[in-house]
């Protein structure tokens, strides 16, 4: 075992590996860029929540979009998940994770929001027993 950088010549990348020679930025520059983008998105989130700059009913949508954007920034610049061929396994696992998360969150909210609407009332239930 040579000890260091034993596998840089292999084609698959572990999540979190910075990619050699991909972007032309050094590893620290990539982190710095991600950090600045994340700061910008965070400041925008807190500013929108505390001001009247955005039309009231649009604030949740704006905040959720900023959060999704910031998660994307974290994934790309900090976790180094890319769309490249060496990252196929990592991206596919992420896609499946996102699918499960969406099913759980959207499904729960959807079902619970319609629960009262879809359930029979006590009266209807009593009538069915006769």
């Amino acid at each position: 075992m040579s000890g260091h950088d034993e596998d840089w010549e292999y084609d698959d990348a572990a999540p979190g590996d910075e990619h050699a020679g991909g972007s032309g930025f050094s590893a620290i520059q990539v982190y710095l860029l991600g950090f600045l983008l994340a700061i910008g998105l965070t400041v925008a989130s807190f500013w929108i929540a505390g001001s009247n700059a955005v039309w009231g009913p649009g604030i949740p949508a704006a905040l959720l979009s900023l959060a999704v954007a910031q998660m994307g920034v974290h994934l790309v610049f900090f976790l180094h998940i890319t769309s490249g061929p060496e990252n196929t396994n990592n991206t596919l696992a992420l896609a499946f994770g996102v699918l499960v998360v969406l099913v759980i969150v959207v499904g729960s909210v959807w079902i619970m929001a319609h629960l009262n609407h879809n359930l029979m009332t006590l009266d209807q239930m009593k009538r069915m027993q006769h």
Binding site: G16, G97, V100, V101, S108
Partner: peptide, 28 residues
């Protein structure tokens, strides 16, 4: 694949499962 990639990938899958667990708390 080299051990480093296997370990990283396995941990990535664990993290995604952790995020799925958090999504249940978020849903609640």
């Amino acid at each position: 694949a080299p051990k480093r990639v296997i370990v990283g990938y396995g941990f990535w899958v664990f993290l995604l499962s952790d995020i799925v667990m958090f999504s249940a708390f978020f849903a609640a």
